[in-house]
Simulated assay, not measured.
Amino acid sequence: MARTTPHDHPHGDPGDHPHDRPHDLALTGERPLYWRVATQLLGELRDGTIPPGTRLPAERRLAGHFGVSRETVRQALEVLRRDGLIATDRRGSHATLPGPPLEHPASPVFPVGALRAAAPRAADRATVTWETPPPDHAAALGLAPHQPTLVHRFESAAADGHGLRRAVTSFSAVALAEVEELARYRYRADGTASAQLRRAYDWMRKAGLTLHHRDAITRLADSPSVRVTRLVHDQYERPLEVTDLVVDARRDALVYEFTLPAAV
């Protein structure tokens, strides 16, 4: 099969210049397949599905997302690269469209339940281990039975010992493969050293992942405590982490705060 290379186009979005297509490439409708992919990818860059400045998913992920070959993805990326819409370095391709920094709006604090109203409290304790996660975590993350992963444990209580919160988080193989800051903990996960991962969600976003979380709140039977189970996945529905938080709710309020950006 003959390979083709996208041509330069001085103005407009990909797909605006049908005369600019190579004649030996299989066409989809009136435009080359790579041109359609470039247009769709540009749309995701502009609508924030892929936030400004973030690393684009790997070529194989984009190929699966758009249902095309990796060669077609490379051609589409070249179209956007020539227009200055993405830039590529040794870590991959990055969106270069203007937009707010990744820290705005701020990512939620990790793990769920770690942030509470200002009050005297005992020091938080957080550690990581490399172990087989709880069975329900393994099932939610798509891990094989007995497959180990990075497990984070967090414990916090007020200074008087009340309002105890315990959270256990298991990370998926996808999260460890895509987020290098998390992957580094693999070799120091001995359960003894402090491991505050409050920026875990920021790290995920900087790796090019759009985060979606689902929280389920249940009251534990015969107990004043409540359980919050959070499952986080990315823009491709791949699970990233699951957290179980148990809160002693006798004297503590579980508060959820959401910020929605204004319409533009």
Rank of each mutant, 00 (worst) to 15 (best):
L45N: 03
R46W: 01
D47V: 05
D47C: 06
D47Y: 06
G48W: 07
I50L: 15
I50D: 07
P52S: 08
G53Y: 10
G53W: 05
G53I: 12
T54G: 01
T54M: 04
T54A: 06
R55W: 10
L56W: 04
L56Y: 05
P57K: 01
A58W: 08
E59K: 14
E59V: 13
R60D: 15
L62Y: 01
A63Q: 04
A63S: 14
A63G: 08
F66Q: 08
G67C: 03
G67F: 03
V68T: 09
S69G: 12
E71G: 15
T72M: 09
R74H: 13
R74C: 10
R74Y: 14
A76R: 01
A76Q: 01
L77N: 01
L77K: 02
E78W: 10
R81S: 09
R82K: 13
R82C: 09
D83E: 12
D83L: 14
D83V: 11
G84Y: 03
G84L: 05
I86E: 00
I86W: 00
A87V: 12
T88K: 11
D89F: 11
D89W: 09
R90L: 14
H94A: 11
A95T: 13
A95I: 04
T96D: 04
P98M: 08
G99I: 06
P100K: 10
P100E: 12
P101G: 11
L102F: 04
E103I: 13
H104W: 12
A106F: 05
P108L: 00
V109I: 11
V112S: 03
V112M: 01
V112G: 00
G113T: 00
A114E: 07
A114G: 09
L115P: 01
L115D: 14
L115G: 10
R116S: 10
A117Q: 13
A118Q: 10
A118I: 15
A118M: 12
A119W: 06
R121T: 07
A122Y: 07
A122W: 06
R125D: 14
A126M: 08
T127W: 06
V128H: 00
W130H: 06
W130M: 06
E131Y: 07
T132I: 13
T132R: 10
P133G: 04
P133T: 08
P135T: 08
D136E: 15
D136G: 05
A138C: 05
A139P: 02
A139T: 09
A139Y: 05
A140V: 02
L141C: 09
L141S: 07
G142M: 02
L143V: 04
P145F: 09
H146D: 15
